[in-house]
Design a protein around this nucleic acid. Structure first.
Lengths: 352, 352
DNA sequence: CTGAAAGCGCTTACAG
DNA sequence: CTGAAAGCGCTTACAG
């Protein structure tokens, strides 16, 4: 780097600890100490340094620091889509919570394909993040090993891997699916449909498994099933199929709210059906729009606050001690019963 | 750092270019060259190095690299809230677009207060980001100077500063406000209300200025005004005030969709009013929910794709050349007319 | 094409 | 408490 022209202020006018030291008349180490918590510096030195720093607009270079300390104070977040409004909410909360702990979120958008996700994570590792959070995506086990061996903790948000090789925070999706089934049966609905999310997702599989298991225990089964892949466009197609089906179910469970809202709109506005008297609709996630009066959608709530809180705890825990075992945390969700599935008439009928 | 125990593999098992060099039997510089685009390395060396790297799971440390190159390939994004669904959309698009250019987004959540935003930006600077994008927030001019002198370009997304000290990407909000007024007048509405966003925001001021100016040109003025601050809870309160007002306007323009949806729900579901025959509602942003059939909200569209595209161009432009002048880019939006404001009966009345 | 060496901005034992 | 020095992992002229 000898040929560099402005070698005293290399990063375009940004001043360094050496500049501050020169101005304050102390050593560069002294400057560093003043900006390091718990390091020893006299009040006098500290004052001189702080004044010089102020004057030069100096702030320590975190990247240089991280080279020595091995901590970047960055957490990589891998996320597939933000049009499911559960995730913006989570992102905002996660980001704020981590910020309070001195960390910041570096975002990586990934397509759902395993190959793409792995590439993305490889890139994340180059940035020396202290930990990785994956939301709505799953990593290959090779990459998990890789992160493991490099000591980078991973927390999966809203997804579990079979092998439980690393930590995760989820709600009990099987239980959620069961509760939806019980609720609909209690309301007197007698035929049921399901619109699935992406079949590679544990959340999708568990929700469906719980739902169909509870139905089966009561001698019932799915009369309609279509795949929406957690995408609104595909949910639209699935809703069209639902309208075309010969024996339309009385109640439909949709694997998440983002899709359920689309389904509800198709039923009401394209087919002129009444929800819930013609057909009940239940979603999952309890995103803000589910609560909007125009929808008033029954939904199994995944408590974002609590999930984020647990995620942050797990991250801090794993980052402070590399040898901790992975933990699977299950937060309990709750069925939020609203008018999209409460058919008063049917309940009394059923009582007969 | 002499006392460090595992000095050969300091970052918990992560291997370095020196490790790869040792295994491949070449110099550390050679390894570096193989991983640098456009650097000279023979096919033989390259092959040896790549194999060794693969074996050790080596990837270059970007933080160390950035110390030398002065480029971190990180862009700081300052954002105040993600519950206005315009922003998650923007974030997803911005993140993907930058990722394609080799950059990644480091997120900073900031409260709307100037003091808080400045603190946040100071912190961003420590991370040595190559550029900063602010969305829905404004910086103090001191901090702008600071970034300027450090050569960090800033692009304001969806906000302009009076002094035009730095680049921005917006739609023409004055024009947007005017178009809303013209549309409502054409539809035959005769009395008008406005629910304002945060008054510190240029978007708010411009939308209102355009709206009231167009009304004034036709001898009309605002019969109702309340402040919603771009927050849904406050929009709810504003809607309540609207219901209590003595002479309820025939049409209400709400400064953004996030608030307009709340207002619409209050009008319909709490007051039993019909939109648009009892009262018309118009929003701004054209967020996805505005298009949902349950709302079908007329809204002035801010084209997220085009705005993001321009933002990325500006960023790349400024990052490649520090001495470029700030640019104010105005993307043209478009009024999306939907049923929340199209009162066919009134139109024919007005024709009489 | 290749290796030895300097240096990016910082932290941290070490010796005073 | 303080300064000189080593070193984090890397890039890049320089000389061969």
């Amino acid at each position: 780097m000898r040929g560099r022209p402005t070698s005293r202020y290399p990063l375009s006018g940004r001043s360094t600890s050496a500049d501050v030291a020169r101005l304050a008349g102390v050593s560069q180490s002294a400057v560093s100490r003043v900006f390091t918590d718990g390091a020893s510096a006299s009040a006098k030195t500290s004052a001189k340094v702080k004044e010089a720093a102020e004057q030069l607009g100096y702030r320590p270079n975190r990247l240089a620091r991280s080279l020595l300390t091995g901590k970047s104070y960055m957490v990589g977040l891998v996320v597939a889509y933000l049009d499911n409004y559960f995730y913006p909410d989570v992102l905002e909360k996660l980001s704020k919570a981590l910020q309070q702990q001195g960390y910041h979120v570096l975002i990586f958008m990934a397509a759902q394909t395993a190959k793409n996700i792995d590439n993305v994570v490889e890139e994340i590792l180059e940035y020396q993040v202290d930990a990785i959070v994956t939301a709505s995506v799953a990593l290959s086990s090779e990459l998990v090993d890789r992160c493991q061996s490099e000591g980078i903790p991973i927390v999966q948000f809203n997804r579990v891997q079979e092998q439980s090789l690393f930590s995760s925070v989820t709600t009990d999706n099987v239980k959620g699916g069961r509760e939806v089934a019980h609720h609909l049966m209690e309301q007197g609905y007698q035929s049921f449909g399901y619109i699935a999310g992406w079949e590679g997702a544990s959340t999708q599989r568990d929700r469906e498994a719980g739902f169909t298991a509870a139905l089966a225990e009561n001698g019932l089964e799915l009369g309609f099933r279509a795949i929406g892949n957690f995408r609104t466009e595909q949910a639209y197609e699935a809703a069209k199929l639902l309208l075309e089906t010969e024996k339309r179910p009385e109640a439909i469970f949709v694997a998440n709210d983002a899709m359920a809202l689309v389904v509800m709109d198709v039923l009401r506005h394209e087919a002129g059906l009444n929800v819930p008297t013609d057909i009940a609709v239940v979603g999952y996630d309890d995103t803000p729009p589910a609560r909007w009066p125009s929808y008033d959608l029954t939904s199994f709530s995944q408590p974002a606050d609590e999930m984020v809180e647990n995620t942050v705890h797990l991250l801090i825990h794993h980052m402070s001690d590399n040898d901790t075992e992975p933990l699977q945390i299950t937060v309990s969700g709750q069925l939020k019963i609203r008018s999209s599935s409460t058919n008063v008439k049917k309940v009394s009928d059923a009582g007969v």
